[in-house]
Nucleic acid binder design. Structure first.
Lengths: 339, 339
DNA sequence: AAAAATATCGAAATCGTTTTCGATTTAATT
DNA sequence: AATTAAATCGAAAACGATTTCGATATTTTT
């Protein structure tokens, strides 16, 4: 393998000069710089990042951590969108990204923190972190700059980012209300996600704002799972036949719900309206097309990256950031009466 | 940061002994090993991988290269499936994986090869490589063990892996023929993918085997693009109204085709049958559900990983591997007559 | 008891860089 | 011409691990 020594030899200078020439130092004569460049070119030299990062004590790379990778069956395209956002930002800031996946099914010997430490990683972006995660506190307490997606926390080195879930949920059910609905159910995700609490709060808020009494029997928990939603819809529908619409905490659940409705012969949106959350790719391909609130995952992860850079390079404190969402009304909400 | 020196000091031994104790060498007394372990534990020591890999000249990590990342809009879930396969294999073999994405839209300063070299990466898995890619030859000639997905080549250090595209395509159109179809069109992908050529070959083979003359006007090129397929279907349908079915080189194109048919009021499968290729997640959610040939991308990437390990650790020569596919008949093929 | 074999340890070299700081040369200033 | 300043270079010390090889202590063999 060709090292800096080899190019030094060929260019007839010291390794110091080679290093300086290649890294834009000013105390090297332009002619010798050319000489060095030519030698490096000739030998097809490329620096050993391991040595480089070792010396500099830190690698210019940030970790993208998927803490629930087993759920990533590709149905929602969000994982890809998240990747796309961080890769774009990484490219912009000249960082590298290393992905660390963790699935709960397999025992994990290593915590994120240990992983990042071992690799001298500068910062991290974390997704899919449950509040019950054993490493939750570790992350927050650590001195590693990191921002976690879809939660709310802030510390010296930790920030977070998400869409404004309570506002989004509120607007979503207000959308129902605007179309004349008064009996609106909700299918929520599991309680270990902070987004579940927030969306429920938004749901309640909208109801309260429009003088509709809150009935906790109308909100059930389907664990963010398509099949669980599928299984629960029949009972849900039978038990509360006066519901005219249901707000789902995720598109995946909405799809499970719709599929079961289709089998049961209940027409959407004629007999029951539904609104999802996320706007995954499947949603616009459904028949009928699913109305939902669109989260901009690309923007979320891009901004997440920029925040870790901010606290890394600009010594900013961690904070929480909201990124804009959008209600997208397609074909699954029936208008009962004009507003 | 706590280094090996610190634990040596605490354990009251030399760094040599610490290193040996922690790496399972036999020439260290069991008691001192315990002592070292305890000290390491106490200090929360974790080795600096950069230094470790630097010394060992090579990192135990393989690169997963997406050479056309901009296409990864998450519509097909294949990217995720591929990731899932290699992460699983990596976990099994105790390797780490680093992902390198390249999009053609942004100028790329660095070739895969350079990237891998700089990071002392042991091997690589490459996807989305076009034959026209400027780095194509570089990869093949390099001494870096790598296997590229969806192509056919083999060398000392390079292998490849894919489904048997010609056989799969052949069986797909034979499936048409079995159902009584004789006038079968094809919508192929761009010519820079070897899979296009192979699937066309399978198409031709099936026709020939059943005495159906090949008409090259019945196969058009929609570039693997959903919208392009969408745009071309009306003309295609009008020009060759005698077609009873069309074999698509990808599900995404099939979906574009179906969407246009829906708008045009042509019934699927009553007026025209369609068969896709890939079995992406969207396919089973279509109405009607798309019949297609299923590629097992998880298996493909998993096996790809194992092959690079094979040529890396077992000094095997690179080769081409086929992984099984499956014709999955859903609701988009009409039976014209019993076989 | 002497010799040989074994067990256990540590000093030091090494991996490929970066970076400090002093040395030397050249140019600018007085 | 003497002094000062600027430009350019290189020796050497890190970074944090691994690994070779010799040293010492202990045990076994003769």
């Amino acid at each position: 393998m060709v090292s800096i020594k080899d190019v030094a030899k060929l260019a007839n200078v010291s390794v110091t000069v080679v290093s300086k020439a290649l890294n834009g130092y000013t105390d090297v004569n332009e002619q010798t710089r050319q000489k060095v460049m030519k030698a490096a070119e000739e030998l097809k030299y490329s620096p050993n990042m391991l040595a480089k990062n070792l010396k500099q004590k830190v690698a210019k790379s940030i970790a993208l951590i998927f803490s629930n990778f087993e759920r990533a069956d590709g149905k929602d395209g969000v994982l890809v969108q998240i990747m796309s956002g961080v890769f774009e930002a990484a490219n912009k800031h000249k960082y590298e990204v290393v992905i660390y996946t963790r699935s709960l099914s397999e025992q994990q010997d290593k915590s994120y923190w240990k992983f990042c430490k071992e690799h001298k990683i500068s910062g991290a972006i974390i997704t899919g972190l449950k509040t019950t995660d054993p490493y939750f506190q570790e992350i927050i307490d650590s001195d590693l700059p990191c921002v976690v997606i879809d939660t709310m926390l802030s510390g010296a080195n930790t920030g977070s980012i998400s869409t404004d879930n309570v506002l989004a949920a509120q607007q979503a059910v207000e959308h129902f209300i605007d179309k004349g609905h008064r009996n609106i159910g909700m299918m929520n995700g599991h309680e270990f996600a902070v987004v579940s609490k927030q969306r429920l709060e938004g749901y309640q808020k909208a109801l309260e704002l429009h003088g509709i009494p809150y009935d906790d029997r109308l909100v059930i928990n389907a664990d963010f799972s398509e099949t669980k939603a599928y299984e629960m819809t029949e009972g849900f529908l039978q038990e509360y036949p006066h519901m005219t619409g249901v707000f789902m905490s995720s598109d995946l659940m909405a799809i499970g719900f719709m599929r079961r409705c289709h089998e049961l012969g209940v027409q959407i949106p004629d007999q029951i309206s539904v609104m999802g959350f996320d706007d995954i790719v499947l949603s616009s391909y459904m028949m009928p097309k699913l109305s939902t609130v669109r989260q901009d995952f690309h923007e979320i992860s891009f901004t997440a990256f920029e925040q870790v850079i901010d606290i890394l390079e600009n010594k900013q404190k961690g904070t929480h950031i909201f990124v804009p969402f959008k209600i997208v009304d397609r074909d699954t909400i029936k208008v009962l009466q004009s507003p």
